[in-house]
């Protein structure tokens, strides 16, 4: 029962706007607003938490910087994600050695 209630609320929240808003919204303000939403939302989800993502500021920052450079060069998603993980992992290894 608990699971049913939480699943129902979670799904309704996700489903209602998508099914109810079927047409292209005309208002230039709302259209522009919704155009910027993903960029603002993702930036808010990335920063500042990315700097502590691995539990260590140095390796997180290096991973983040490597990902930005790879993304700037328009590498594919998986490649960018892999570069972030591998470079952070290398920093962690180096720090263990030192």
């Amino acid at each position: 029962m608990y699971i049913a209630v939480m699943a129902a609320v979670t799904y309704l929240v996700r489903m209602l706007p998508l099914t109810l808003i079927r047409k292209k919204i005309k208002s230039p303000f709302i259209r522009s607003f919704l155009y910027y939403v993903p960029f603002a939302a993702l930036a808010a989800m990335i920063f500042p938490s990315v700097f502590t993502a691995t539990g260590n500021v140095a390796s997180s920052t290096v991973g983040c910087a490597a990902a930005i450079i790879a993304a700037y060069k328009k590498k594919t998603l998986t490649v960018v994600a892999a570069i972030a993980c591998i470079s952070a992992f290398c920093v962690e290894l180096v720090m263990r050695v030192i």
């Binding site: 930036a43 990335i46 938490s49 993304a71 328009k74 962690e92």
Partner: peptide, 28 residues
Amino acid sequence: ACLGLAIYGMFLAVIVPGARDSRPVLCV
């Protein structure tokens, strides 16, 4: 920890190209 960074890498992969090609998006 390193896998957790995969999500951030993926986020960066989708917003950085947009920010690179559009000044307003970069500001946002």
